[in-house]
């Protein structure tokens, strides 16, 4: 199954994603898309590593072009997170011509090749601030890819301070 988990900052999205795969017996791939720029990113990465420790994840770091990723057979993939992936496709050294299309190609590839795909994304753009054009473009693109991922998902959940609010589908106790 494909699951999209959204919500604001630090509201339990990763925890929910991991708990959904808590009883999954196959290989579990943690697909990290955040580039370790600076001490804050490193702290976030190390915090998430500690949270995942002992839960049996293999970590793969890939920042762009997810459609070229080789996924082990019958593995579950936890992609964290869409916000970083899109930023990488829009703003990194090898920028994609069409960042939304590049992201969605990767998502379709993962859907085809993984037993389960859990996508962690973000809600941005509800703060009333008008940002510089480039950032506004990022907000729009994130909305576009989120809506496309939601349409392609069996389950869509918004995390609100740790509480899962189901927007589509039904929350299983765990995925096997």
């Amino acid at each position: 199954m494909t699951v999209l988990i959204t919500g604001g900052s630090k509201c339990g999205k990763s925890r929910l994603a991991e708990s959904l795969l808590g009883d999954f017996s196959g290989r579990k791939i943690y697909l990290a898309t955040m580039q370790p720029f600076g001490s804050e990113a490193e702290a976030a990465i190390s915090r998430h590593r500690i949270q995942r420790a002992g839960k049996g994840y293999e970590t793969i770091e890939q920042y762009t072009n997810l459609d070229s990723l080789r996924v082990p057979e019958q593995a579950a993939v936890l992609l964290e997170c869409m916000g970083n992936l899109l930023a990488n496709e829009m703003f990194s050294d090898n920028v994609a011509d069409d960042p939304c299309a590049a992201v969605l190609r990767g998502i379709r590839h993962l859907q085809r090749n993984a037993a389960h795909l859990i996508i962690v994304t973000n809600q941005v753009g509800s703060d009333g601030i008008t940002y510089p054009a480039e950032t506004e473009r990022y907000i729009r693109n994130l909305g576009t890819v989120n809506a496309a991922c939601a349409a392609a998902s069996d389950l869509v959940v918004e995390c609100v301070y740790g509480i899962p609010v189901v927007l589509k589908g039904e929350l299983p106790c765990c995925i096997r």
Partner: peptide, 11 residues
């Protein structure tokens, strides 16, 4: 209602 780019007009 909704934040930016959440599909309000599409709806």
């Amino acid at each position: 209602i909704g934040g930016k780019a959440q599909g309000k007009r599409s709806f």
